[in-house]
């Protein structure tokens, strides 16, 4: 039986607009299975990123319910949602959002430090392993401003993977990258999914979305189309799961 890790039921998010309240997510029912690589596509302003933020508990729905690993989240406090994000979810954004004061290694260690389950040595070792597995073994001590765009985004992916989250959510992770880096990042996300984690990616790039297991198209806050890509699961290098 397929294990559902993210499920939305009747999800609605309304925001104030010039002429009253507008629904940017309008009644979305969606279930994402464990180990699935889901791409959410759609034109600008369609509500695809808003849907991702709702599923990632970064925003709260106006109506509906979101289940993360079977847990209903609408009644959770901010603090409980933060804890769930820390332990279960990993985020990658279009902009890397690495903390500029810290090295690549320290940035990856940050979620681990916040969770506080490992010793410093264990954290350091795990962060180094993650970065090395993403081809950044030589860049551990470099700060974000000493890295290329693609390298920064890979550090951001390593940071998202730091606490072994069940689900990785990526919002246009290749939006600022050149073609080579885009391919590299997508391949990494594919590997992450192949390693058993769920990956949900928002992208406007249809060719990249075609590499996901399933593609959901959002238009005007609703799911317009859902397609399953049968040949998406290409063999990939294993991502270190420390």
């Amino acid at each position: 039986m397929t294990e559902i890790v993210v499920q939305t039921v009747g999800l609605v998010r309304r925001v104030e607009s010039g002429d009253g309240m507008a629904a940017i997510v309008n009644g979305i029912d969606l279930a994402v299975a464990k180990g699935e690589f889901l791409a959410i596509t759609g034109p600008s302003g369609s509500g695809k990123s808003s849907l991702l933020y709702l599923m990632g508990l970064l925003d709260a729905p106006t109506e509906g319910e979101i289940f993360i690993c079977g847990q209903p989240t609408s009644a959770m406090s901010d603090s409980e949602r933060a804890e769930l994000r820390l332990s279960t979810l990993g985020f990658v954004f279009q902009f890397h959002f690495l903390l500029p004061e810290f090295t690549a290694l320290e940035n990856v260690m940050l979620p681990m430090r916040t969770l506080g389950r490992l010793s410093m040595d264990e954290m350091r070792e795990k962060a180094a392993t993650l970065l090395t597995s993403l081809g950044l073994g030589e860049q551990l001590a470099r700060k974000p401003n000493q890295l290329s765009g693609g390298q920064r985004q890979r550090v951001a992916i390593a940071r998202a993977l730091a606490n072994d989250p069940t689900i990785i959510m990526a919002d246009e992770p290749t939006g600022n990258l050149d073609t080579a880096s885009t391919d590299q990042v997508f391949a990494i996300l594919r590997d992450v999914a192949n390693s058993g984690r769920t990956v949900i990616v928002v992208t406007h790039d249809v060719s990249l979305a075609a590499r996901a297991d399933r593609r959901v198209s959002v238009v005007d806050g609703k799911i317009a189309e859902a397609l399953v890509n049968e040949r998406a699961k290409a063999p990939a290098a294993q991502i270190a799961r420390a």
């Binding site: 970064l58 603090s79 933060a82 804890e83 994000r85 820390l86 985020f91 959002f97 969770l115």
Partner: peptide, 16 residues
Amino acid sequence: RNDIAIMKSLGMKEGL
């Protein structure tokens, strides 16, 4: 503000 946003998205609580 950017750092705060990402720290919160990573799961840091407001108090922290």
